[in-house]
Structure formats: structure tokens, C-alpha cells
Write a protein that binds this DNA or RNA. Sequence first.
DNA 1: TTCGTCATGTAATGGGTTACATGATTAC
DNA 2: GTAATCATGTAACCCATTACATGACGAA
Lengths: 187, 187
Amino acid sequence: MLEIAVLGLLNESPMHGYELRKRLASLLGAFRAFSYGSLYPTLRRLQEAGWIDEEAPLEQTPAPSVGFAGRSKRGKRVYKLTAEGKEHFATLLAEVGPEAYDDEGFGTRLAFFAQTRSDIRLQILEGRRQRMTEQADGMRTSLARTRERMDRYTLQLQEHGLESADREVRWLSELIESERTARPPLG
Amino acid sequence: MLEIAVLGLLNESPMHGYELRKRLASLLGAFRAFSYGSLYPTLRRLQEAGWIDEEAPLEQTPAPSVGFAGRSKRGKRVYKLTAEGKEHFATLLAEVGPEAYDDEGFGTRLAFFAQTRSDIRLQILEGRRQRMTEQADGMRTSLARTRERMDRYTLQLQEHGLESADREVRWLSELIESERTARPPLG
DNA sequence: TTCGTCATGTAATGGGTTACATGATTAC
DNA sequence: GTAATCATGTAACCCATTACATGACGAA
């Protein structure tokens, strides 16, 4: 999750960790803000895997002290995607399994839809819609079956959840529709 | 989270693990279904803490083999809340900090609102509303600032998120209102 | 007798968080 | 010169998941 988000942002432009975290927070909507305690280890892991790389900073100050990679002690580390990283990111975006439909995964995929193939976009939207439809139906059934036995708070909770699920289904249907008209099927 | 949910359900009636999991799934809405890999260890932990206890099953079959606590080999283990467990659960429900407002925590608290003191209910609802209001405002600001630079998918994502947040705020306001009229402040 | 579902459990792992620690840079 | 914010990092922990393993019981 963090991995795909980091790769996606770095695919748009090189960035350092601190900035990455801010972009992440605003992209994924204030909630889901990832702490540094997971971000920095992830950056290291991605670098070791060869998917991202540190940009050597262009030296304005004449002589950096002995430090490796051009950094004196502990300056900004600006990361960018490598060729393999771009490839890997493309592979991740092309996955259409359940991990692309669930609550955490779907938001992240959608955030990078502009970089996703249009047939994959459609598959993900339809998968998500199916999942949300099933969830809504399950809640409807359970509500119908146990409505009388529930206290008003449980009822409110379930009804709000159901309405949210229904709203999302409608929203997805609109997205699917405009996706289809924008790129009509061959023939 | 699992702890409070387990205690809450067992406070309503004694139950075994398997049943607990099904009730959990329907209570928290199909999503958030907790696997056995976390449920059973939690039950053990709660039992070791003295908050829940195994009910000795009433023997219908004449002689169980040597097993301890009345179970022959591995039968159902029906758990119930102890007195300390009830006390502990009440303490958990009375917490009004951030853990009661965030996404995971709030749903669980609301599910057991019928067992929660009405002044605490009000505090939790107001805390949640404040949090969601702040979140919505943050998203509105960020949308206003970066709307032009965003692709249509990111825009859709943010707008849907904003609408959901706004809807929840309105819903919370209704709950707060009815909570207040049902139990008007002293005087 | 075999299949489905009820029922309990463990081991390995994952993906994050909190709290802590450090240092550089900017604004007042 | 000092406070805020930018910036990077580590260690300990937490709460869950997946995959696996076992076994009882009822219905076809």
C-alpha cells in the first residue's frame, strides 16, 4: 500500500521523504497519513530493491565534507524512480485482484488512475462495484432479518453504512459509464 | 478493538468463539470480520486477564472422558463475562479520547451505545463530529487550492470523500440532536 | 462414506504505529 | 538566540492476517 503510493508519487516527480508524506496525506485525504516510522524504512526497502534511487543533489556550496553520495551529514534525500521501478509500478497498477477492490487498495488505485490503462480502470471499477453491491445486499438482508431485535443505535449504524454503500455503488456506476463512453469497446 | 467488541457481545449473552465471529461480522457490517487467528488468542488473553470465563457445559452425555473443565477433547468453549470483565468493559466504554473518534473505534463504540452512559454518548458523538468536520474542511481547502492541477480521477476521489464526510457530519448532528432532546441537560 | 459446516487452535508474517532521538534551516 | 518547522531515522510494539492443522457432527 505504502509501496504503491510512494512509487506513484515518485513517478510524477522526484521528491524527498518528508514531502512525500505531506503529498500522501493530501492525496489520500487527511486520514491515512502514514507515519515516518513506516515511510523511511519503506524508502530504504524500495531503494534496496532497485526501484527507486537517490538523486545526487547539485552542489551549490563549494565543498561537501567527506559524506557519501554528495550529502554532507544528513541532508535531504531526493528519490526518483528507476527504469525497473517504473516497470514494477506499471505491473502493480495492472493487478486486478481483490487487493484492488478492498477499502485500502481501491483508493490508492483510483489515485493513480490517470497512469493506469483504461481497460484495467474499467475492471477495477467494476470489481469494486460488485464488491460494494454485495456488501450493500448483505447489509440489507441482515437489516431485514434483525431490524426488530436491534437497538436504535445499532440500527442507525447499519442504516448509515447501507446508505454509504449504496451511494458508492451509484458513484461507481457513473464513473463506469463515463469510462465506457470515453473509450467505447472495439467494434 | 477486538477486545471491546468481544466484551460487548459477551455482555449481552454468553457465546463460543465461532458464534462470536459471526455476530461480530454482522454487527460491524460484513467488512471488519476478524479472523480466527486473532479471535482465539484474544479470548485466551481475556480469560487470563480474568475478564471472561468458560462456562462449564451442562452434561447431557453421561460420562465425558478425562478432559478438564468438563470438555472431553475439544468441544465448544462457551465464554461469559466475569464481574471484573463487566467493570472493565464499563471503563472502556467510558473512555472519550481520540480512540473513540477514529474510524475503527467509533463504529465499535456506537455498536454498544445502548450499554453506554448517555453523557458519554453525547461526548463521543460530538468528538466524532468535530473530527469529521475538521476532515471535511481540510479536504475542502485542499480541493480549492489544487483543483486545477488534479486529474479527473483524483478529483472524483476527493469529491466523493468530501461528500461522504459532509454526510456523516449531518448524520451525527441528527444523532446529537435526538440525544439531546431525549435527555435534556439539567435545569 | 463423504461432504459441508461447525468449531478450535498455532506459527509465521505483515504492515503498520508510537515514542524517541538527532540535526538543519528559517522566521522572528 | 530561540522557537517552529523541516528533515531523517531507529526500536519496541501492536494488532491483525494468512496458511495451516485438527477434529466433531449432521445430512445426502
